[in-house]
Nucleic acid binder design. Structure first.
Length: 654
DNA sequence: TTGCGATCCATTTTT
DNA sequence: TGGATCGCAA
């Protein structure tokens, strides 16, 4: 498609935004109103106006959104958009850091992921049980970094009950930062922070960046947190800012995003022009009616009322089962029936879940019934324990100072536990070369000879990543097989093939490691090539920006929407509402909701004083918005095709 | 100190 | 369901 015919597809509002002459602007757009399309169109327009594609930087919040945009750009603009960059904030910052390490005061560094962070916190925290768990400390720390707030504020927000240990927590945080400094570790937040801090203090640096980033196109603006804003704000007046967002889809509060941020845009950017996109091209009116209703009953005024451009209509279906097993099986079966009867593609179907945990039930059913699927948002290939074990060898080869990797590697061997490993690691990071490290370990005697030999071999092969992975596998496979024998080793073993496959694209170990800390890739994404016709199982957070003809939203029970953990916290419950809103608005033609509880509605939970502390979003859903089907337990077992009776649901508010 | 077995436990979301 | 944690023996 040529870019001119692509521009012709836009409606007036989209066209106006895409061709604006404003230096800075904010596009407020509801779900399905063509946000991504407008961003792509903006890029096309700027290119047609003579701005080189490689001076346009698209920023997104998640990797998935970034790759979605890349696909759309390729689809619509083809080669004319070559050189256009679309990346997450993190990848963008890494790009800057790599291009000019000195400017950011960096020599060597290793990027550590959340697991590594947790490991450090675990070491620092010790075994005494008073302090919050390592993972919780990690969350508090990260929240404080992302919102640029005081520790006490972060504790209050993330884990209020930990307030009494504030001074101890502060001590741990201080040591954590020292430790990172000593080892040249950068955590996720450091990547953004280093860039932001340097940009703010150096106009030269801002100027340098703005030369190849004349335009920033920012997607999902509502999810930007103060740290990310600090990254963008130095460019006000230097580069163009074109930001797109929807406050009703703000679901990253836990990462420090405030859904009202977007409303402050005008205050922060003096000459900003605001555009609004209101027409929804994605869904049927029935789907939008339910979505609109969900926002309407919120105490927060979202002031959103999506209107469908589509004329065809269909009400969402709500299927109720007696247990989650039947719920999951029914979904798998329904997928099969649709595929057979309607001759549709698996591709047109998506199952949206709240968490990786929730996906398991569905996954099992899909596997049992042989429905081909990919799961996006679960445990990532390069985050799985066995792969990290293997990568720990590459890490120490790449950086002998990486004590976290040393510990992971050392604890694999018999006779070395936590304590022994950390003592050894202290000595190992004093060594200058890997050779020295190996000698030290040889002397110690617990790590097998042949493994040390392989380690030495790897050190001369740092620019042959695949060979290193093969060597590492040779060194570890026996030990790993024993370690994971009870946790389906045979399946895990296959993952190493995928790792090798990924490694082929990379020349240097360090580069390979760096790339995959930021993009650990879900296992099924590697296995299944993108054009495969398969069902997508996805977490709602990963699903922003995607759409399918038929969407299933299971687990619509009490304590799931809103989630039990959010109960009693007004902001958290409202964020849950937006999460559900995002899920509902993914569907183009059909929306199928399910839950596993035969009671048609539930009581609001009541506290000691009889005040409601939580509610279930679907408690008062007007009956005309949904078609409800109740599946009795025995029906499923007796005869799957037996007609099911329809009843009305909830209170009719008409 | 390690490593195993037993018991308990709760189970968001992403870079 | 499996993951984290605890207690105990070697």
């Amino acid at each position: 498609m040529s870019s001119t015919s692509f521009m012709a597809e836009l409606n007036d509002q989209q066209h106006q935004a895409a061709t604006t002459t404003a230096q800075n602007c904010l596009v407020l757009a509801g779900a399905g109103c063509g946000k991504t399309k407008t961003i792509v169109a903006r890029a096309a327009y700027l290119i047609s106006q003579g701005i080189p594609a490689n001076q346009i930087q698209i920023l997104t919040f998640t990797r998935r959104a970034a790759s979605e945009i890349v696909t759309r750009v390729e689809q619509y603009l083809g080669t004319s958009a070559q050189g256009l960059r679309a990346s997450t904030f993190h990848t963008f910052c890494m790009y800057l850091l790599r291009r000019n390490r000195q400017a950011f005061g960096l020599e060597n560094f290793s990027i550590i992921d959340r697991d590594d962070q947790i490991m450090i916190f675990r070491l620092l925290r010790g075994k005494d049980n008073i302090l919050p768990k390592a993972a919780e400390l990690c969350d508090i720390y990260s929240f404080a970094r992302n919102t640029q707030c005081k520790l006490s504020v972060a504790i209050e927000k993330v884990l209020p009950e930990a307030m009494e240990f504030k001074s101890e927590i502060a001590e741990v945080m201080k040591t954590y930062e020292q430790r990172k400094q000593e080892r040249s570790f950068l955590d996720y937040d450091d990547i953004l922070s280093i860039v932001a801090v340097n940009l703010q203090s150096s106009p030269t640096l801002v100027h340098w960046v703005s030369q190849f980033c004349r335009v920033f196109l920012v997607d999902e603006m509502q999810d930007t947190n103060p740290l990310q804003w600090a990254l963008l704000s130095p460019f006000i007046g230097k580069s163009q800012l074109f930001c797109v967002g929807d406050d009703a889809q703000s679901i990253y509060g836990f990462r420090g995003a405030d859904f009202e941020n977007i409303h402050y845009f005008k205050d922060n950017v003096s000459n900003a022009v605001i555009y609004t996109l209101e027409k929804n091209y994605r869904s049927t009116q029935g789907i939008l009616d339910l979505s609109n209703w969900l926002l309407d009953v919120s105490p927060i005024q979202y002031d959103k009322h999506l209107i469908a451009a589509k004329s065809q209509n269909s009400r969402p279906h709500f299927h109720i089962f007696s247990n989650e097993f039947e719920e999951a099986n029914w979904i798998a079966q329904d997928l099969i029936i649709r595929k057979k009867q309607n001759n549709v593609h698996w591709n047109d179907h998506m199952v949206l879940v709240r968490s990786g945990y929730a996906a398991r039930h569905i996954e099992r059913a899909l596997i049992n019934m042989s429905v081909p699927y990919q799961f996006i948002g679960g445990t990532k290939l390069l985050e799985s324990a066995h792969v990290k074990d293997l990568l720990s060898m590459l890490r120490v080869v790449s950086n002998t100072q990486d004590d976290i990797a040393w510990m992971r590697f050392l604890t694999l061997w018999d006779g070395i536990g936590d304590v022994g490993a950390s003592k050894l690691a202290v000595n190992l990071i004093k060594c200058q070369t890997l050779e020295e490290c190996c000698n030290h370990l040889e002397h110690h005697g617990r790590v097998p000879q042949h493994v040390l030999l392989i380690l030495k071999q790897m050190s001369v092969l740092t620019d042959t990543v695949v060979a290193c992975i093969e060597l590492a596998f040779e060194a570890l496979h026996e030990q790993l097989a024993a370690k994971y024998q009870k946790q389906d080793w045979s399946r895990r073993e296959k993952d190493f093939k995928l790792v090798k496959q990924l490694a082929q694209k990379h020349a240097q170990i360090s580069e390979f490691l760096e790339a995959y800390v930021l993009d650990p890739i879900s296992t099924s994404e590697v296995e299944q090539s993108a054009d495969h016709d398969i069902v997508t199982l996805i977490t709602i957070h990963s699903a922003k920006g995607t759409e399918r003809k038929v969407c299933y939203v299971p687990h619509l029970t009490v304590n799931q929407y809103p989630h039990a953990r959010a109960q009693g916290d007004f902001d958290a419950v409202e964020e849950e509402r937006r999460v559900l809103y995002v899920a509902l608005t993914r569907a183009q033609n059909e929306l199928v909701l399910t839950k596993q509880d035969l009671t048609t509605w539930a009581m609001d939970q009541i506290d000691d004083q009889g005040r409601p502390v939580s509610s279930y979003f679907f408690n008062q859903v007007p009956s005309h918005l949904l078609d409800v089907t109740i599946h009795k337990r025995d029906e499923f077992f007796e005869n799957k095709k037996k007609p099911i009776k329809k009843i009305s649901f909830g209170i009719d508010l008409d």
